[in-house]
């Protein structure tokens, strides 16, 4: 029983780490640009498939770095061509655009790589279980959590200590004033969007190594990521981090006792948080009114 619980908590943490990576990217984009990016899951898929395509040439390690970077470049092009036209308009427009984009990416992937699942080949030593009793903790799972931890730490350090990061945090609350202080906010938004998409691409590579690739894999991770943002509190990146881990673990633990409710539990969690604390666990009061 203890082992079963441990197994599911570990599973939950790992799934939660994915939610965190996805949700942080979504949060960055919502906070600075007010765009709810429904195509975020699509960029995850792009990252995964790029890794699949690049692995023969670059190996797993090369793909791990290059695939998210290429995904970010694609994100940058999409932002310049499409998304930036919608800044300052009713959020409904960006919702519709990114919703359509998500379908286009999914079908584009299916067209290029086919509908059947594909693997991202992971180095052998990462696939070994650490011990016989803790068979479910493979090197790769630990590795995923480590990569997510490093990416999250790097993001927080960049936002805290670099001028660009400070400007992004300032712009979250008052982009107009940032622009009068000599900052090219168009470029700031592009950079911020690309950073968010980089995180989506990275989740895609990591997820591909664990679960394999499939054109619809992004959609399944998107909704929990939104829930992570809401539970943590819109506008707060630390909140998003906590929210993602929390719903991951909650789903994992529920799977032990009441497997069929393991998906529903995150919605219940969200409802409870919203009832008790409408701005989310760490959200700023009145930010989204």
């Amino acid at each position: 029983m203890t082992q079963l619980l441990l197994f599911n908590v570990t599973n939950g943490l790992i799934i939660g780490a994915f939610y965190v990576l996805m949700a942080l990217g979504l949060s960055l984009i919502i906070n600075l640009s007010g765009v709810i990016n429904f195509a975020h899951g699509g960029f995850l898929v792009i990252g995964g498939y790029l890794a699949y395509a690049l692995t023969p040439a670059l190996g797993f390690w090369g793909a791990l770095l290059v695939a998210p970077l290429l995904t970010a470049v694609i994100g940058l092009v999409v932002e310049r061509l499409l998304i930036r036209r919608l800044y300052g308009r009713d959020p409904l427009y960006s919702l519709l655009l990114t919703f359509g984009l998500a379908f286009m990416i999914e079908d584009g992937t299916r067209f290029i790589w086919g509908a059947q699942g594909l693997p991202v080949t992971v180095p052998d030593f990462l696939n070994q279980p650490l011990s016989a009793s803790l068979f479910f903790i493979t090197g790769y799972r630990l590795f995923m959590v480590a990569v997510v931890a490093v990416a999250v730490a790097a993001l927080f350090l960049l936002l805290r200590y670099t001028r660009v990061g400070i400007r992004i945090r300032a712009g979250t609350l008052d982009l107009e004033t940032v622009s009068t202080l000599g900052v090219n906010v168009g470029r700031l938004r592009s950079l911020n969007f690309a950073a968010g998409i980089f995180l989506a691409g990275l989740s895609g590579v990591l997820a591909g190594g664990q679960l394999g690739l499939d054109p619809t894999m992004g959609a399944g991770l998107l909704m929990p990521s939104f829930i992570a943002i809401i539970v943590g509190g819109v506008g707060s990146l630390p909140g998003t981090l906590v929210g993602g881990l929390l719903i991951g673990v909650a789903a994992g633990v529920t799977a032990v006792f009441f497997p069929s409710a393991s998906d529903a539990v995150m919605y219940v969690l969200m409802a409870v948080v919203l009832l008790l604390r409408p701005r989310g666990l760490m959200g700023e009061e009145g930010l989204m009114t």
Binding site: R169, A170, L173, D174, T180, L181, G182, V183
Partner: peptide, 28 residues
């Protein structure tokens, strides 16, 4: 702003979520 025009808006509009030092690092 880059031409050398500094603007102090009505109501000051300082960034409430940033420290004083961080507020001073926003200008470019």
């Amino acid at each position: 702003a880059a031409l050398g025009v500094g603007y102090v808006p009505e109501g000051r509009r300082i960034f409430p979520n940033l420290t004083v030092e961080e507020n001073l690092k926003v200008p470019n």
